Simulated scan of single mutants.
Amino acid sequence: MAGQLQGKVVAVTGAGRGVGREIALLCAKEGANVVVNDLGASADGEGADLSPAQETVNDIIAAGGKAIVNGASVADPAGAATIIEDAVKTFGQIDAVVNNAGILRDRIWHKMSHEDWNAVIDVHLNGCFNVSKAATPYFRDQGSGSFIHFTSTSGLIGNFGQANYSAAKLGIVGLSQSIALDMARAGVRSNCIAPFAWSRLIATIPATNEAEAQRIERMKTMSADKIAPLVAFLASDASKEVTNQVFGVRKNEIFLFSKPRPIRSMHKSEGWTAQSIAEEFLPAVRGSFANPAERSGDVFGYDPI
């Protein structure tokens, strides 16, 4: 029986290891021809090694699938363009782009350098832009295509020591929403996934207390292969009606996230002053404030099944 992605061509960034590798393997199993992109850098973005990407390709071919290696950096616009060019040159088309590549340079806010900030923004946010921009002309010409971007609850909710990563990941949601709106008339869709999965990036996060150590142990039970089925679905024709959404995957759970919308309003016909805001507006809305100290681990504190 043909897979969900039979005849499709899918480009997966950061596909040499972890979540990206599992996505590439499943997409190939579902019938797609796959471009396996991975610079092969360390968790903080240093160095390069094509062997992880080649190993993923070798495994796909050994299982009877088709795949090629691309070792470009998504942070480089010219390099990102080669990912799409390689797909079209080798397989004749491009049908889905999975923006998964990422690095971490966690620092508490007052110690974060411009270098830490720029490196993470370049790979995550600019990388999504670069690869998506390169695929857009092909998607427009064929009147179809799927962008699948990886966000994070660190951006959607918040986390300690990740201002660069959180900003990039929430920026990706804004990018995806605008792409979905701009490209709808061309039959192109764009969605985000916030994954919960153990990876070498998660392994770099230090545990500073017992609660954080327990959270890391819970993360170890969340295997990367659990993320791949939702990606394969979003890359397939079965998801043609699905666009401009934010999903999450946590072991055997799939979430649909809400988006920021007004929850309370208050009108004052004569206008507001700083004093009237303090005396009237604040008491009226205080009960609806988001918890200022809440982070991802607090919202998802229960054990996954």
Rank of each mutant, 00 (worst) to 15 (best):
L39T: 02
A101D: 06
G7R: 04
R17Q: 15
N100H: 14
V74R: 00
R107F: 06
I68E: 02
A53D: 01
S199L: 13
N209I: 03
S190K: 09
N58W: 02
P229M: 12
A80G: 03
A235N: 05
L201V: 06
H267F: 15
T90W: 05
W272T: 02
E280L: 10
Q4W: 10
G3W: 01
E85T: 05
V19D: 09
S239D: 05
N130M: 05
G16D: 07
V74Y: 03
P137A: 06
G102S: 06
I103V: 14
S269N: 14
T82R: 02
S146F: 13
F91I: 11
E212L: 14
R189Q: 06
K251A: 14
D237N: 13
F257D: 02
R107E: 11
T136M: 14
V97E: 11
N130E: 05
V131Q: 04
D298T: 02
I172W: 02
I277P: 04
A274M: 11
G171I: 08
S42I: 06
S144G: 14
A87I: 03
I121K: 02
F247Y: 10
Q4F: 12
Q142P: 02
G297I: 04
I148E: 00
D106T: 04
F247Q: 02
M183C: 10
V98L: 13
E253D: 14
R295K: 11
L104P: 03
I172Q: 07
N100I: 11
I179L: 12
G248H: 10
T82S: 04
E85W: 04
A228D: 01
S199Q: 13
V120T: 15
W198T: 09
P206K: 03
Q275L: 11
H110Q: 13
G20E: 00
G79K: 02
G102M: 10
D122P: 12
V242Y: 03
A15N: 09
V123G: 00
G3D: 00
R107D: 10
V9G: 04
I179M: 15
F91D: 10
I121G: 10
F247K: 05
I305V: 13
S166D: 13
L125D: 00
P137E: 06
K251R: 13
S132D: 01
V19N: 12
Q177D: 15
S288E: 10
A228K: 05
P262W: 10
S258C: 06
M219C: 08
C192N: 10
K89C: 11
K226T: 08
G187D: 04
V34E: 01
D86P: 00
M266G: 09
N209G: 07
R140L: 15
K133W: 04
V9W: 01
N130D: 08
H124P: 00
T90A: 09
K89V: 03
F300I: 09
T204R: 04
N37E: 02
A135C: 08
H124V: 08
S296M: 14
S51Q: 13
N70I: 12
P262V: 04
P292H: 05
R189W: 00
E279F: 05
A168G: 07
N33D: 13
H267N: 14
K66E: 12
P262R: 09
P262E: 08
A28G: 06
I94S: 00
